[in-house]
Simulated scan of single mutants.
Amino acid sequence: MSLDETVFSPDGLAEGSSTPLYLRLQERIRNAIEAGDLRPSDALPGERDIAQAMSVSRVTVRKALSGLVSAGLLEQRQGSGTFVARKPPMVEQPLSRLTSFSEDMRLRGLETTSRWLQREVSLCSTKESIHLALSPQDKVCRLRRLRFAGGVPMAIELATIPHKYLGDPEAVRTSLYAVLEAAGFKPVRALQRLSAANLTGSDAALLDVPAGSAVLSIERVSYLATNQPVEFTRSFYRGDTYDFVAELNLGQD
């Protein structure tokens, strides 16, 4: 990338301020991102080029860029360099409708993809047996995947289905609900619990956010028309991509 002289110039950077130089450089780059002079996915020049253009040390540049990476404004790709972070799509999700992730994103015109992290058949855990009304000897299918919308990682999802409703976890390619509906086990209602959580390092890496980032933790149990539980799902949704909305009515005395 060629140097943008309006961003990477020494003018005004070192004059009359007690603020550390790396913080002033951070502010210069941050303002350029907010003003649109540096756009999502734009590549930044190399550390050496920035240091020479702005008459600062590479240590100063490295420290400034590191702070912006931690803040989520920049991202560093191994072997490729430093880029302005892609802005994830904002999704407004109503709490009154039971839909799949694939359907939610399709309705918003976003292409969905998944990376499978786990697909297995195993004995149910204690927590799964309680939520799915199973005995400890019953088997379940576990489907854990990283969900993307528009190429951006949005959620980590672990769905557990009683084996009697889903015989082969490999049958799920995109939409779990589509597979269940085709088999005659379509969920018709669900109970959902939302809480706040902070991501561990491994989950944060999957969602491409700093470790400790705030997320929405969601547990959902979905039911068949016969009132039998058919799905127990635990998900982490990026806190910077989702707004959950509920319509409330004033109760009558």
Rank of each mutant, 00 (worst) to 15 (best):
A246Q: 08
L25M: 13
D168E: 15
D240P: 04
R106G: 01
R108F: 05
A196S: 14
T241G: 12
V215A: 15
V84W: 03
V121D: 05
A214E: 14
V188D: 03
Q76I: 02
E247M: 08
G167P: 01
P20C: 02
S217Y: 07
N31L: 10
S66V: 06
R119Q: 14
L206D: 05
A133M: 03
G167N: 11
R193F: 09
L13T: 04
D49W: 00
L143R: 07
L98A: 00
A204V: 00
R142S: 12
Q76R: 15
T113W: 03
L132G: 04
L143N: 08
D4G: 00
S202I: 05
H163W: 05
H131S: 14
P45A: 11
E181K: 14
L13M: 02
R39E: 09
D138P: 03
L44C: 04
G67S: 11
T82V: 14
G72T: 02
A246W: 05
A51K: 10
I161V: 15
L123N: 06
V188F: 03
Q26W: 00
R58Q: 10
R220Q: 07
S100L: 06
M1V: 06
Y177K: 00
Q192D: 04
V140G: 01
L180D: 09
F101W: 11
G36I: 06
V59E: 09
L74H: 02
A225R: 11
A43V: 01
V209T: 08
L194A: 05
R145C: 12
T60P: 06
A51W: 11
P187D: 05
F83K: 03
E5L: 13
T99K: 09
K186G: 06
T82D: 03
V84Q: 00
G151P: 05
T233C: 12
L110D: 02
Q78W: 06
Q78L: 01
L194F: 15
A159E: 13
Q78K: 08
P153R: 01
Y177N: 13
P187G: 13
L23E: 13
R234C: 06
T99G: 02
L132C: 08
P210R: 04
L158R: 07
R108K: 14
T160L: 02
F232W: 04
L180H: 07
P88A: 05
G201A: 14
L248T: 10
T126M: 07
R115N: 07
L199E: 00
Y242W: 01
L180C: 10
G72C: 10
I29V: 10
S129Y: 00
R144T: 15
S55D: 08
G67C: 07
T112M: 15
D240W: 03
N31W: 01
V245H: 08
H163D: 11
S135Q: 13
F8I: 06
L107C: 03
L158Q: 11
S96M: 13
P210L: 01
A182N: 12
R30K: 12
S41P: 00
G12I: 07
V91F: 02
S80W: 01
L132S: 07
P94A: 07
Q228K: 12
E157I: 12
S18A: 09
H163C: 09
A51V: 14
